[in-house]
């Protein structure tokens, strides 16, 4: 399983979504410095979150059931829970742009990370 690559792709996706939304809604030229520097915290938070909440599903049970089955069984509940937390966080933060951007990037990145983890296995499965 190519976990470092998935973490790198996830961090990049998260970075793009986070700044993409801010760029569209409320962008100021003075932000450029922050954009470059933000790669570090975004990567750390994103990787940690994926490692702690998604990776264990594929790491522990990969010998017993196929990753597609893991996806089918656990992904719906994971998606609903993450969506619930994201929506709750957005409401609590009174719909300010930074929290919206943060939770949107967290939600879409984790969802895509599930697909990458599941797909990673499939490509190695003998047909």
């Amino acid at each position: 399983m190519n976990t470092p690559l998935i973490l790198a792709k996830s961090s990049l996706l998260s970075f793009c979504i986070f700044w993409g939304i801010i760029f569209i809604v409320d962008f100021e030229p003075g932000m450029f410095g922050f954009i470059v520097l933000s790669i570090i915290p975004i990567s750390i938070v994103c990787s940690a979150f994926i490692l702690f909440t998604i990776f264990p599903f594929f790491w522990r049970k990969s010998n017993e059931v196929s990753k597609a089955n893991i996806f089918r069984t656990y992904f719906p509940f994971y998606a609903i829970i993450v969506f619930g937390f994201s929506l709750f966080g957005t409401i609590i933060a009174k719909f300010y742009i930074f929290p919206i951007s943060f939770f949107a990037s967290a939600f879409f990145t984790t969802m895509q990370a599930w697909v990458w983890f599941s797909r990673d296995y499939k490509n190695k499965t003998p047909q």
Partner: peptide, 20 residues
């Protein structure tokens, strides 16, 4: 449960299935 899952994340399941 199905409605909520479909609304928030069906796109990703479709992505995986179409790939497989």
């Amino acid at each position: 449960l199905n409605g909520l899952y479909t609304t928030v994340a069906r796109f990703f399941e479709h992505q995986l299935n179409s790939n497989s």
